[in-house]
Computed example of a mutant assay.
Amino acid sequence: MYAKFMALPFVTRRVIIAAAAFFSMFLIVHLPKNGFSETLLFAAGLTMLWAVGILIPFLKILFFVLKWRLNYVVRFK
């Protein structure tokens, strides 16, 4: 099964992974709230961001804002 999955085109594999992550997020939301279910939801969300292809730009913007904020706090407060 893994060999068949890897034989698929790159975009098709990403779409399948994103759909599976979205479906798992849909199921996880209906679980009772605790640390484990929240961790699973976070992991599924990161997986979906990675599969869609916006994780790296999201992280770059996040680190830029963090760097700017820390620089502002160090200089002016």
Score class of each variant (00 low, 15 high):
F63G: 00
A7E: 09
V65P: 00
Y2D: 08
L27Q: 06
K67A: 14
F76R: 13
K77E: 13
E38K: 04
L27M: 06
W50V: 12
K67Y: 00
L62G: 09
M48F: 14
A3L: 13
A20P: 07
W68R: 09
E38R: 05
A19L: 12
L27S: 03
A21V: 06
L62V: 05
G53S: 03
A44P: 09
M6Y: 05
F42Y: 15
W68I: 14
Y72Q: 05
W68N: 07
T39G: 12
F58A: 14
M6C: 10
F58N: 07
V65T: 08
V65N: 08
A21G: 03
R75F: 00
F10H: 08
I54T: 10
G53D: 11
A51E: 10
I28V: 11
Y2R: 04
F23A: 13
P32A: 07
L8R: 09
W68C: 08
P32G: 05
T47I: 04
A18Q: 05
F64S: 13
L59G: 07
A21D: 09
W68E: 07
L40I: 01
M25N: 02
A51W: 03
F36S: 06
L70H: 01
A43T: 01
M25Q: 02
L66R: 08
A19Y: 02
W68P: 00
A43I: 03
F64V: 14
K67W: 00
K33Q: 06
K33R: 07
M48Y: 10
F64H: 06
A19T: 05
R14G: 12
F26M: 11
L70D: 01
V65L: 15
Y72E: 10
F26V: 14
Y72W: 02
A20Y: 15
M25L: 04
W50I: 09
T39P: 06
K77Q: 11
L70C: 00
F36P: 01
S37C: 04
A44S: 15
R13P: 07
V11P: 10
S24G: 08
I28G: 08
M1T: 11
L49D: 03
T47L: 11
A51N: 07
L49P: 01
M6R: 10
L8T: 04
K60C: 03
A43V: 04
A19S: 13
L41Q: 02
F26C: 03
N34K: 01
I16D: 02
V73Y: 02
K67G: 07
F22P: 02
V52I: 15
R75T: 10
I61F: 10
V52Q: 05
G35T: 01
A3C: 06
I28A: 15
F64Y: 02
L27V: 12
F23I: 09
Y2H: 07
